[in-house]
């Protein structure tokens, strides 16, 4: 389909008309952090270079009730959580965050049955992207899939070209969106403007190529892990800000004769994540735990899903309280080093 443009001042009218048909979420600034919230719950901010939170909680909420129960004597009642039933659109999604969905899709469909609550939300969600004009210092999407030029999992994508947005549709859903009255066909000068903006954005990103090959020979015993382990705090900031992290725990909340079972986020960075009931912990120290995160993203994911588990959003880098920088870690691991025979299965 041909590209369109929409004047900046028409964006809110367009989103409001969409909001009549479905829930619309957009990045809003809330107490100093940017996160995706329903339209109207705060000031929309489209000039961010990375919202604090990814889309993760909109597909796998931090707390997700699986079922509730009640019992009286020997009679128990079970009530499953209803599947997501409303349509929604998420506006202003960064290219890396959209691409992350492809990875999470693969994770949640790897085994049968696939994760229905996740896919119910996934299938009812339309993604409208907003490409970055001004990538942050921590971004490195060019190394992990080049999503600015190779968008993934977006229905449509917008680029800020001054007083208007240049818009392209990538799916039928996207085409329908861009047929709204606020859009008009793009001219040659718009296409040129987009090109300029893209080039400028790309110039801010690392020029290094893909990682896939190198990853498979990462050194399991690299001295970098004991080093990281010394300073890593073992918090969950990196994993919880990551759009591809997906680990969860199942917990129960019981109150008298009723309660619920829910799943909530969990991460390999926590000591208890791998602690077994009988007391053994296969990842007993931060050395193993920091390695797990890096290896999972860059190595195991390629082995398992044939794609990287990192989309280069840089969140874990900018949010880590002790400046552990996965981009630098990976660069270190890829430095030609004296070959060592690594054991590499967990």
């Amino acid at each position: 389909m041909e590209a369109k443009v929409i004047a900046k001042q028409d964006i809110s009218a367009w989103l409001s008309s969409l909001a009549e048909k479905m829930e619309v979420l957009a990045p809003v600034e809330d107490g100093g952090v940017i996160r995706y919230r329903p339209l109207g719950e705060g000031e929309m901010n489209l000039n961010f270079s990375g919202p604090a939170k990814s889309l993760r909680d909109h597909f796998t909420p931090e707390t997700e009730t699986l079922f509730r129960y009640k019992y009286e004597g020997l009679k128990a009642e079970l009530e499953e959580s209803p599947a997501e039933e409303h349509d929604r659109l998420i506006f202003g999604v960064r290219a890396c965050d959209a691409a992350a969905l492809k990875y999470v899709d693969a994770v949640y469909s790897m085994v049968e049955p696939r994760d229905e609550p996740y896919f119910a939300r996934r299938e009812r969600t339309t993604i409208v992207g907003l490409f970055c004009n001004n990538p942050a210092w921590s971004c490195f999407c060019t190394e992990v899939g080049n999503f600015l030029t190779n968008p993934q999992e977006m229905d449509a994508g917008l680029t800020d070209i001054g007083d208007k947005y240049y818009a392209e549709a990538y799916t039928a859903k996207g085409e329908e969106l861009l047929s709204a009255a606020q859009f008009e066909p793009a001219g040659a000068e718009d296409a040129a403007a987009v090109e300029k903006v893209k080039q400028k954005a790309l110039s801010r990103l690392p020029a290094k190529g893909a990682h896939e090959e190198a990853c498979l020979s990462y050194n399991w015993d690299s001295p970098i892990f004991p080093e990281l382990a010394e300073k890593c705090l073992g918090c969950g900031v990196c994993a919880y800000s990551c759009p591809t992290c997906h680990c969860f725990d199942i917990q129960e909340c019981a109150q008298g004769k009723k309660g619920s079972r829910f799943r909530c986020w969990d991460t390999c960075q926590f000591e208890k994540f791998t602690l077994m009931g009988h007391g053994h912990n296969p990842r007993p120290s931060k050395k193993e735990r920091t390695r797990q995160r890096v290896f999972h993203k860059f190595k195991y994911s390629i082995e398992r899903y044939k794609m990287l588990g990192c989309v280069g959003c840089g969140r874990c880098i900018s949010a880590c309280p002790v400046n552990i920088d996965i981009h630098a870690v990976v660069a270190e691991l890829e430095k030609p080093a004296p070959a060592s025979e690594g054991v590499n299965n967990e």
Binding site: D30, G31, V33, R35, K53, D57, E62, L233, G234, C235, G236, V237, A239, Y240, S241, C264, W265, F270, P321
Partner: peptide, 16 residues
């Protein structure tokens, strides 16, 4: 209520 509804329990506060 507003502040705590943002908390994602990453425990960075505690760990730091």
């Amino acid at each position: 209520a507003g502040q705590f509804s943002k908390c994602i329990r990453c425990y960075a506060c505690r760990q730091a």
